[in-house]
């Protein structure tokens, strides 16, 4: 059984064979280094096997790396991390609204005070007439 590992690079819409290795670890190390260099939008390592007895071959991807994958991985890692985003600040009450509220409270207090005083006055007058 013959086994080789090909590094394929994707650039400008085309996959190309870049190099051939007989060692998977070496091929993956080189593919990762090429990926870090950022020259290609995608890199993969394809294992090619060929059985000389049956004359049948097979291929499978043993390593794949794209910029899209990298961005997705980084996003997933960010989602896993505890959120550090601060809660939104409470809505501040406008000063104009605050002023109206104070005025209403003062008016209500004055009105209540006037009613109480009037009540006391009426009760005092009735008490004087009765006496």
């Amino acid at each position: 059984m013959m086994v080789v590992f090909e590094i394929h690079t994707f650039r400008e819409g085309v996959w190309k064979i870049d190099s051939v290795f007989d060692d998977k670890e070496l091929a993956v190390v080189e593919a990762q280094r090429m990926e870090r260099a950022g020259r290609y939008s995608a890199i993969r390592v394809v294992e090619e096997t060929f059985d000389e007895k049956t004359e049948k071959g097979n291929t499978r991807t043993v390593y794949r790396s794209t910029k899209v994958d990298r961005v997705n991985t980084e996003s997933a890692e960010r989602r896993k991390a505890p959120s550090t985003i601060a809660a939104p600040p409470k809505k501040a009450v406008p000063k104009k609204a605050q002023a109206s509220f104070t005025r209403i409270m003062i008016m209500a207090s004055l009105t209540l005070g006037a009613i109480v005083l009037a009540g006391i006055g009426i009760m005092y007058a009735l008490h004087s007439l009765a006496g």
Binding site: I17, D18, S19, V20, D23
Partner: peptide, 14 residues
């Protein structure tokens, strides 16, 4: 022959 056929660097060890 492999290098000429594929036109890319090839590495082997044994």
């Amino acid at each position: 022959g492999d290098v000429l056929a594929k036109g890319v660097p090839v590495t082997y060890g044994n």
